[in-house]
Write a protein that binds this DNA or RNA. Sequence first.
DNA 1: ACATAATTTAGATGTTTAGCTAAATTACGA
DNA 2: TCGTAATTTAGCTAAACATCTAAATTATGT
Lengths: 104, 104
Amino acid sequence: MSQVFKALSDPSRRRVLQLLRERPMTAGELADHFDVSKPTMSAHFAVLREADLVDGAKKGTTITYHLKMSVLEEALLDFAETFGLQVKPARRSATPRRIARREV
Amino acid sequence: MSQVFKALSDPSRRRVLQLLRERPMTAGELADHFDVSKPTMSAHFAVLREADLVDGAKKGTTITYHLKMSVLEEALLDFAETFGLQVKPARRSATPRRIARREV
DNA sequence: ACATAATTTAGATGTTTAGCTAAATTACGA
DNA sequence: TCGTAATTTAGCTAAACATCTAAATTATGT
């Protein structure tokens, strides 16, 4: 849990998670959204991986990261619970553009 | 928001918040729950103060800290919102002394 | 005014972090 | 096999962090 919060304590890393919310993206695609060097982004990815908030699928020369939403939810939930707060899925409006054609 | 998550990334600090959930406590009382030195705890309090998660009322020679629950809630809420999650007050089971009167 | 209690500040040390550039790794395609 | 692309590892620096002991601060009670 500490690692999740540590991961979330950096704005770039929160933004990465945000971006991954829309769709999985490669390390390079993600890095393009930021002003820092790729090695720096790579380190951020490592922190997110250690917190188990993302996982990366290597395919050829690229690595596609995807958000482990359930892990994020669970961490928030576990923490919030100890404060008498409830966390749960809410409105669906944050991925509205296209109907997801998900793999079956 | 980064400061809130940073504050939450340390187990001792989370525990402090937890303790303050039950009732306000003085720095000394809080420190007695931990194995580290008082100056160390004082530094933890400072981090929590900077995140605006607690505030300390000086009375005579003691400082009584209390949890700013609404700030914690708000931070969690703002963050969760960007992930399509909802945070809200839940069951009252952690402060069970009185029966909750659920407002409609 | 003094001793005591509660807390923080100062100053030191070792560890972690975020950032950089340069180099290594790995896979692909010609 | 060679060159290129994508990503990470290595090695560095500077700043931040967690921790300690010792000292300073502030208020209280006698």
